[in-house]
Design a protein around this nucleic acid. Structure first.
Lengths: 121, 121
DNA sequence: CAGTTCGTACGATAGCCCTCGTAGTACGAG
DNA sequence: CTCGTACTACGAGGGCTATCGTACGAACTG
């Protein structure tokens, strides 16, 4: 639907690292937190952009904001405002260009580990 | 070569996590430190076991010991004593079985980043 | 405008982690 | 046995980080 031009990209803007600024250690550190790893997995599962609030994390709102900031500043996700919500998307292209296969390997590993540690569903 | 039976595995033993105990977050955290990432890269480059002291790290000996312990306790490396020295080897098999492709992707990424950030040699 | 929803900013706390120096243990050589 | 080498253990300091609560701002709905 082309009618969906961004009604409000709003004045608010967020700082993202340039592709060349992304550091491997930063990405690994960002992914080494269980909370953030889960966020990335969820994000990868839907192949699209997700509102911050759809994640059912067992932490407060402030903490959630903090984790999203870490992911954004390390170059793992891209965030844009859309009205009152903030959309999140994996930076697949950039990560694949810089560290080929890394994101896929991590996601696969997380999946394997989840089933290995017993996820009934 | 069968002639190389271990002359002194010595009484000292070190605790290693079982393969099933290795956690992805732990591995990622271990690799997210520049010092440890370099150790792993060096270790991968020689395809064999390396004495702790061959690494020329810009930190004190105590700190080096600390990093090797983190790598061992997270399941990334295996360490054995041999006389006064301690040999280190990557746990390639275990990591590949648990997280296929992960180690390779990280090593490749580290290599790419090193050349991207300008390593003359 | 008033109200609601969504996310941020700030301050505070507690815990972890990297670093170090010093002292100590294990092993091999002389 | 004595010495040197290789690594560890312990304690401490300084910084980062995960967490929270509360107060605030920005945008849509009426």
């Amino acid at each position: 639907m082309p009618a969906q031009n961004r009604p409000s990209s709003s004045g608010r803007s967020l700082e993202h690292p340039d592709r060349a600024e992304i550091r491997l250690e930063g990405v690994l550190h960002a992914l080494s937190d269980p909370m953030r790893l889960q966020i990335v997995c969820d994000l990868a599962a839907v192949e699209g952009e997700l509102n911050c609030s759809v994640f059912d994390l067992p932490v407060s709102k402030s903490t959630t904001t903090h984790h999203f900031r870490v992911l954004r500043e390390s170059g793992v996700v891209r965030q844009i405002y859309r009205g009152t919500a903030k959309l999140n998307a994996l930076r697949r292209d950039d990560l694949e260009a810089l560290f080929p296969g890394l994101l896929g390997a991590v996601l696969t590993a997380a999946g394997h580990q989840a089933s290995r540690l017993g996820v009934p569903s």
